[in-house]
Computed example of a mutant assay.
Amino acid sequence: MGLDDFELEPSEHEPEEWDPESDLHDPDAPGLTIPAVETDETDAPKEVVETFWITVLVVNVAVFCVAVGPMLIYFEGWIREGAAMVIAGIALFGLAYRRYRAFMQGPPPEVDSNVADASSTPARSSESEASSADTHDRSDSSDSTDTHEDSS
């Protein structure tokens, strides 16, 4: 029994197969017409794109090191070189994870210049504190009256 014994042509009872390229056929063009998709290259901020590609590169090198290191140890007997590659790969995975976590946490909060000035100046006088407290009390009382007016 060889390959010539099998009938590879479809029988007349089988339905026609759907051609996924039929809607892409242009009778005026010599071949298939692939629709063009326009994308804006500025869809993502530059820092996101840069961090993404750096992380992809680091993870690819880490995978290479972790994969080739044990092969060097097993097939070639190069224990020192293979172990160094595995350790380098693990360190690169850690670096990529650290970079990812730092990006997801966002930039460190900026120090407000007013806060820095307030911490460097001496404590306020009791007069200014009292006037601030009076202003705060008046705003609280106006808020509470507004609340009572809304409920009626």
Score class of each variant (00 low, 15 high):
residue 2 G to M: 02
residue 7 E to H: 07
residue 7 E to K: 10
residue 7 E to W: 00
residue 13 H to Y: 10
residue 14 E to N: 01
residue 15 P to L: 05
residue 15 P to D: 06
residue 16 E to D: 11
residue 16 E to K: 09
residue 17 E to K: 07
residue 18 W to T: 14
residue 18 W to L: 12
residue 21 E to V: 08
residue 22 S to I: 04
residue 33 T to W: 06
residue 33 T to K: 14
residue 36 A to H: 13
residue 36 A to M: 13
residue 43 D to V: 15
residue 44 A to P: 00
residue 45 P to G: 04
residue 45 P to M: 01
residue 46 K to L: 13
residue 51 T to R: 03
residue 53 W to S: 03
residue 55 T to R: 05
residue 61 V to L: 14
residue 62 A to M: 03
residue 64 F to L: 14
residue 64 F to T: 15
residue 68 V to P: 05
residue 69 G to E: 04
residue 73 I to C: 08
residue 75 F to I: 14
residue 76 E to Y: 10
residue 79 I to W: 12
residue 81 E to Y: 02
residue 88 A to C: 13
residue 88 A to L: 14
residue 89 G to R: 02
residue 91 A to M: 11
residue 92 L to T: 07
residue 95 L to W: 01
residue 95 L to D: 06
residue 96 A to E: 04
residue 97 Y to R: 01
residue 98 R to L: 08
residue 99 R to F: 05
residue 102 A to V: 00
residue 105 Q to F: 02
residue 108 P to R: 02
residue 109 P to T: 03
residue 111 V to R: 02
residue 112 D to P: 01
residue 113 S to M: 01
residue 113 S to R: 09
residue 114 N to A: 10
residue 116 A to K: 07
residue 117 D to T: 05
residue 118 A to H: 03
residue 119 S to Q: 10
residue 122 P to M: 05
residue 124 R to P: 15
residue 125 S to L: 03
residue 127 E to G: 07
residue 128 S to G: 03
residue 130 A to M: 10
residue 132 S to I: 07
residue 136 H to L: 13
residue 136 H to S: 15
residue 139 S to E: 14
residue 140 D to W: 11
residue 143 D to S: 13
residue 145 T to P: 02
residue 146 D to M: 04
residue 147 T to D: 09
residue 148 H to F: 09
residue 151 S to A: 11
residue 151 S to I: 09
residue 151 S to V: 09
